[in-house]
Amino acid sequence: MKTGAIIPPLIALFFVVLTGCSTPKVVEDAASAPVALPPLAKRQVSYRVAPLGQTDLVFIGQPRSSDARSTPAGMAYPGGDPFSFLAAIAVHAAIQGSVTSAAEQAQIEAANKVLTPFKELIDGLYQADLLSANQLAGISEKTDDFEVGLLEDDRLPTGWLVQLNPMFVMSRSSDAITAVVTLAINDGRIREIEASAAPYQKVIAIQSQPVANTQEWLKEEGAKFTDTLQHLVSAAIELGINQFAGLLPPKEEASSTLRYLENGEKKIERGYLISESCSALIFESLRGELKWIPKNGPCG
């Protein structure tokens, strides 16, 4: 066979191989293509709150501000030669590290002493006890802008899904409880959403009205204590949804010095004011937490 006669079949084969390698065109199956979901409205829509689990409450005592905060701290290092200077720093750093961690641990333990009278109450409650369908119905009754209910089965809702993780802080004077709730609102139609992609994720801190007498918490087998925790959880959900739905005023553009009472004393915090009335101060802290503080000013 002549060489020239071999070339045309080889070229033909080459093209056949090429064609075989090329990605075949796929006729898109309309059913399997990702469907672009229409955006969910934030008002006139339902919000379903994922129930809290049968897990213990996370409750801590409010840490005391360090007494040394206003003391100019410092340490003089021997500077005779570079080696002793560096050695002194290393020794100081090692000692300081262990002293600091021991001091922090001692501070936490000291702060938690405030919980001692309430230990039995706290141990007797699960997170699930703090959130009920009735509470959420109470939120819905207050507004025509949205409806809130408890997510009752494993199926994701067609509206918004609200997930929360609460912890509680008892004030140093035991007169008030603050709920610190991490709250996320996601489109319930989407099964997997990365945490960072949640349309709304916020730490919400809500402080209870202070009680005049700390014994009030323990009366009637701790009814006020439990009611307060439930109310704080509901209030955090309501506040979060209200902000997400644009029902709260926008925060002020510039931060300002905000004053409120904590442990019966004036507390100063820099933040972005959202609203202030005779009954409450709402602001965003410099860390981005949404805070709700009760006020006892004269109304009307």
Partner: peptide, 9 residues
């Protein structure tokens, strides 16, 4: 506060 190159606090 610093001690030469090193922060003291």
């Amino acid at each position: 506060p610093y001690a030469a190159y090193v922060p003291r606090a």
